[in-house]
């Protein structure tokens, strides 16, 4: 899933201070699972915003709405009848969702309430860890299912570096060394041959905005343009 972290409250408050009617828009998918931007968090944030405004003369109005996925126009359409009542939208979705919300309602200013942090896994309730950088050329077959791009702080393809520290990364004792783990796993699987050969420089395919059209959908998409 895509993991995000709520922005500091003061930053959120400052970003919308010039608006009197703000709709806080949550997303029911990734950011709901990581307890950052779902329906519950929308309620918490708008309550906090209301509370912090009590002392001021003309309190702003905060509405709440949570759609299943902000990265999908079909779901964004669900709020089309209410957005007109607001002069700003505060999105709690990931960066993709925030942008799609702004694209769907281009006449209304949209502000982010979260920082999108990584593609990760659910280690436990409230505990998430990064696993993928979406580099576009997956190396997991070579490395025993451990990503050298994400899990190695230097994204080495021929590791580990000299800074590896008894199984930990040089940047932090608590961060395991990806290449130590890769070696251990491949060794146990009898697949060390995978990393004996020199891995050539990577083809970084995530350096320009990416588009994917599945086979069979080309015509449909061409005709809709």
């Amino acid at each position: 899933m895509i993991v995000a972290e709520r922005k500091p409250f003061d930053e959120i408050k400052e970003s919308i201070q010039d608006y009197k009617k703000v709709l806080v828009v949550g997303c029911g998918t990734c950011v709901a699972v990581c307890l950052t931007g779902g329906e519950k968090e929308v309620g918490v944030l708008s309550a906090e915003l209301k509370l912090s405004q009590k002392a001021e003369s003309a309190p702003a109005v905060f509405g709440e709405a949570t759609v299943q996925r902000q990265c999908d126009f079909e779901f964004l359409d669900e709020i089309k009848d209410i957005v007109g009542e607001y002069d700003a939208l505060l999105s709690m979705a990931c960066g993709a969702g925030i942008q799609f919300l702004a694209e769907r309602y281009p006449e209304i200013p949209v502000f982010p309430a979260v920082d999108t942090t990584f593609i990760g896994v659910n280690k436990d309730v409230g505990w998430y860890e990064e696993r993928c950088r979406a580099c576009g050329s997956c190396a997991l077959a070579m490395t025993g299912g451990i990503c050298p791009v994400t899990m190695c702080a230097k994204s080495l393809f021929n590791g580990p570096c000299g800074g590896t520290n008894q199984g930990s990364c040089e940047i932090n004792k608590d961060q395991p060394c990806a290449w130590y783990m890769i070696h251990e796993r491949l060794s146990k699987q009898g697949r060390l041959d995978n990393i004996m050969k020199i891995c050539p420089p990577n083809d970084w395919r995530n350096q320009t905005p990416q588009t994917l059209i599945q086979p069979g959908y080309e015509e449909r998409i061409e005709s809709s343009k």
Partner: peptide, 28 residues
């Protein structure tokens, strides 16, 4: 060389490049 991670240095906010690694650099 790969180089020490930027986190250790005087600009820990910097973007580490690591486009290629030290073995790939040698070969280049």
């Amino acid at each position: 060389l790969s180089g020490d991670h930027q986190q250790f240095g005087d600009h820990p906010q910097s973007k580490g490049v690591f486009d290629i690694d030290s073995t790939q650099l040698i070969n280049m």
